[in-house]
Write a protein that binds this DNA or RNA. Structure first.
Lengths: 192, 192
DNA sequence: TTTTTGATTGACGCGTCAGTCAATAAAAAA
DNA sequence: TTTTTTATTGACTGACGCGTCAATCAAAAA
């Protein structure tokens, strides 16, 4: 079976396997062997390509956040008004692709690892900064100086719905989260 | 030094040490030896009293949540109106005693362990249920049927500020969180 | 065909950690 | 005083996980 050009294939498979494994175990306490098995390779190969377990986990995190980033960008495209773009940000945050049990569990686990790992911390901060700057940019023309503080609150609301979903049993209810968050924004704007 | 009646003293010291250790490491990945050393005893003694590491961690979690519960109850006492009690709930949630880096880190870590451990999950659900029922009870006379949905949103807001604080560097800014959350409630009530 | 290069893994060393156990020491009870 | 009970720990073990390494295998290049 040894064919040339396997590296990118294996890397992707391992990262995907890591996300799934973290999601299914609900914790970063996954072994390289578990990840490798799920990806259909040996643990030695995982080390061969990634060097260390931490590198695998960081790559998984990067992938989750970049998926979210892509969605955010895509959702805002074509929207004409600021309020539409705000709604698009909220919708993307709770879209079927991102607001999923395994992704939520992984995302939560990364929050914890950000307490220790510099890489994880940096990546999460980038995501925070981008979300924040997006929100402020759209809010400013609508509510002026209050945009900064309100962006923080909206972000907290989004993160809050994420973490609470992590504790729920059933499949995520993105619509309720969207309704609440968008509702908050609408009331904000209506009041000026 | 062996004196009788050490058990409750040791238990308390070990649980406190566990909270501090988790907070300082920012993760549940703490060893029994670390906890025991911080409490000034051997790891064997920790096992002697608690039987297992998981029991220590669960006890630590129970303690954090019961501290929060006490504060919540105390804060509501003496308040006459529903809106005052709502503000008291928010203030207690972000009080100096609870909204502290090590407690926040431990709390976050417990959220993760709730994905795996039945005990942790159960404890967190109790906290959620109590907060939810408190909020609904006070909101109902003010906004009627919308109370249920809004209680969920307020809870998400609180949890969201917690998790976002976990990523920040400096010491927690409880006032800002209180201002935002209480502000949300005020606007809610003002609109009827 | 021979050589090189990339893919792949089984086996293993090294460290860590949870939990056990037997032994010691001192207080309390008999 | 002798016996029992409680507190306490050093030493140990069995399991587990990361990361390494030498070896194998097949495709590609020479």
């Amino acid at each position: 079976m040894p064919k040339v050009g396997m590296e990118p294939v294996r890397r992707l498979a391992l990262v995907d396997a890591a996300i799934t494994e973290i999601g299914s175990r609900g914790s970063l306490d996954v072994t390289v062997t578990q990840i490798a098995r799920r990806a259909g390779v040996s643990s030695a190969l995982a080390h061969h390509y990634f060097g260390s377990k931490e590198n695998i986990l960081t790559a998984a995190m990067r992938r989750i956040l970049s998926m979210l980033g892509d969605d955010l960008r895509a959702a805002q495209k074509g929207k004409e008004t600021a309020i539409e773009r705000l709604h698009a940000i909220v919708a993307a945050s709770f879209s079927e692709r991102n607001f999923r049990p395994d992704v939520i569990a992984a995302w939560l686990a990364f929050y914890v690892s950000a307490q220790t790992s510099g890489d994880a911390r940096r990546l999460l901060k980038v995501y925070h900064a981008r979300l924040r700057s997006n929100l402020i940019h759209e809010l400013r023309p609508l509510i002026g100086a209050r945009a900064v503080r309100e962006a923080e609150t909206i972000a907290a609301l989004i993160d809050g719905f994420y973490i609470r979903q992590a504790l729920r049993a059933g499949s995520p209810d993105g619509r309720a989260a969207i309704a609440a968050t968008s509702g908050y924004i609408d009331r904000l704007v209506a009041q000026g």
